[in-house]
Design a protein around this nucleic acid. Structure first.
Lengths: 343, 343
DNA sequence: CTAAAATATTTACGCGTGTAAAATTAAGGC
DNA sequence: GCCTTAATTTTACACGCGTAAATATTTTAG
């Protein structure tokens, strides 16, 4: 009932009986003040729920408690999922996450970085668009703001890169597919927006050759991030015109595979590895929806948990140390084969 | 090369040859200054890319340019899609969108509102969790901050509600299903997190009775937002134990339907409306993934575009007028039947 | 060309907090 | 109980911009 309205830290300090600078220190780090002082302040907070004004706080701090998170396309559940994990970890680390999506647009990516710059983030976790990114703009940003690059590697960008071991993951899947049936044809976009795709293609070619098989690649036309649509349309064409040299298709990513499975379904091709199946399909990413395709999609999982944890750990370390690691470190986490019904 | 480093508005004003108050006025509204002045300022901006400090700006303005957007679960592509549209419109309106996800957690929803409150948003677009929401906390928030409620209606919350006409949409789909085959059984969660589900169930019962059919409802057990999983698990059980009175199933939402289709697929039940099909399945929402199910999902679409546009328009109107409309207005947009292969 | 209207400048203060330096007080060990 | 050390208070200024009032300048209308 009698909730005293506190307008600023001055009034709150008076109310709690502690001096304002000490109160300020408390809000910066509650454990930096004496235990008895901390207790008194917290009692006062309980009585009048005062919160310091964020704008005033950040105006004078050289280092804010903001951590930016930029992803290329938040409407893609893959990025939504990893952003969600990162957000949770950033909050646990005592920082304030601000997630921005570039919606697949390089101009918006640049705008997002500009927007972040204006809130002086302590650090940024950046998953760039990739091929389409404005490299210069990103480099300029990283020169000013501590940045950890994740998911999609742009050489030299940020103080570190943490991501998925595309090479290992591709060969794990390949080895499985080859020992359990025909060697797969690789199905990918002709001009993929994401640089991971190149790693995967190269790993496919190398591993196939190492295992004594001839690589076959089918390219899907189409630009942008509508990968299910591209996988469906081009997959259907390729199936109809019998472009696949074997009965097994390894899609460059799960979203292509999701569209491809629809194409196969509509053509009456039974997908799976049992009797009476016409072909096998595998994906890559363990996309949240890969559990709900028909049939469920065999794929290689990113280590979401470790990638998120490691990325957050790295950016927090850079923030605390104050100086970015002089040598850019690349950390890759191995993928895990997720065996389901499609291959 | 010679990019002068401008540290604040003072320096920028000196650089551009205009006084600081006028520059300040320009950034508040570029058209409030003389055309020639505007041009000079914009020339200077092009030369040194200065941007006013957001924290300092917002500290003194009674009305910030921030607009909060809160959705219950951003990893759900449905909300990702509508959030994306809203963001775009908010930016076009000259405001700064800040999107937060409650990740299905009522405590995080409250935390998000607290977080928004501290950045003094001019207005907020809120899609609450629904049943799980902390009603008191939300009401307190809405009393202080202009809020437009969308997607999920909580009576009395916010100055307006804009959403989907569940009643109309349900009956449109029902009429279609009935005239093209057997009357459908309604498949829904026993304790749905979202209040739209109740509207849909009631509309189903009413419309069925109006059209002279007996309503049948199958309830899926399970809590939370993992609706595909629930639709799959419970759908499979219900199919095996033959709980469906007719060959047509109308799922309460697309995510349930997506899981249900996987169950039907695994049981070897051919879904669709042609010859040789064992059953029909329909959904509700036109979820981004409903185009890529097997078979593609017949559903009722939200009017994403109008809901987003109307919600943004309303909150901007409240912001500009300064006073919230005294009588809470509810605006519903009709759904559109999306005919695909599943029904 | 002149007066009225519109716009820009000057000056000055306020916002709520960070933070540094010096002075004071409290806590802990012997 | 005294001394050392750590924590707190006092004082004072800074941050970057909003904004008001008075004044000066430019633009527009007649």
């Amino acid at each position: 009932m009698s909730k005293p309205k506190i307008r600023n830290m001055e009034e709150f300090a008076a109310f709690s009986g502690i001096s304002r600078p000490t109160v300020s220190k408390y809000f910066h780090d509650p454990d930096s003040v004496r235990a008895s002082t901390k207790e008194r302040i917290e009692m006062a907070i309980a009585q009048c729920d005062y919160r310091p004004n964020i704008f005033a706080i950040n105006q004078n701090r050289k280092l804010t408690k903001n951590v930016g998170i930029v992803v290329p396309y938040l409407a893609d559940p893959f990025f939504a999922e990893i952003a969600r994990r990162i957000e949770t970890l950033v909050i646990a680390g005592g920082f304030r996450p601000i997630t921005l999506s570039s919606h697949g647009d390089p101009a918006l990516e640049v705008a997002n970085l500009a927007s972040l710059r204006s809130i002086k983030p302590a650090g940024v976790l950046l998953a760039p668009l990739g091929r389409a990114s404005n490299r210069t703009a990103i480099e300029e940003f990283c020169a000013d703001v501590p940045t950890v690059n994740f998911d999609s590697n742009i050489e030299g960008v940020g103080t570190a890169f943490v991501g998925h071991n595309n090479t290992q993951a591709t060969s794990v899947m390949l080895e499985y597919l080859i020992r359990s049936g025909e060697p797969p044809v690789f199905f990918e976009m002709k001009t993929p927006p994401n640089p991971n795709a190149n790693k995967r293609r190269n790993a496919y070619i190398e591993t196939m050759e190492r295992l004594g098989h001839t690589p076959h690649i089918v390219h899907a036309e189409g630009e942008g991030w509508e990968m299910e649509e591209i996988g469906y349309r081009c997959g259907k064409q390729a199936l109809i015109s019998k472009q696949f040299a074997t009965n097994t298709v390894f899609c460059s990513n799960d979203r292509l595979a999701i569209g491809f499975l629809v194409a196969a379904y509509e053509l009456g091709l039974r997908v799976g590895l049992g009797e009476g199946c016409a072909m096998r399909v595998a994906g890559h990413d363990n996309h949240p929806f890969s559990r709900f395709t028909c049939p469920t999609l065999t794929t290689v999982s990113h280590n979401y948990a470790l990638i998120a944890a490691s990325g957050v750990e790295m950016i927090l370390k850079v923030i605390e140390s104050g100086v970015p690691d002089p040598h850019r470190k690349t950390t890759l986490f191995d993928g895990e084969l997720i065996m389901r019904a499609s291959a």
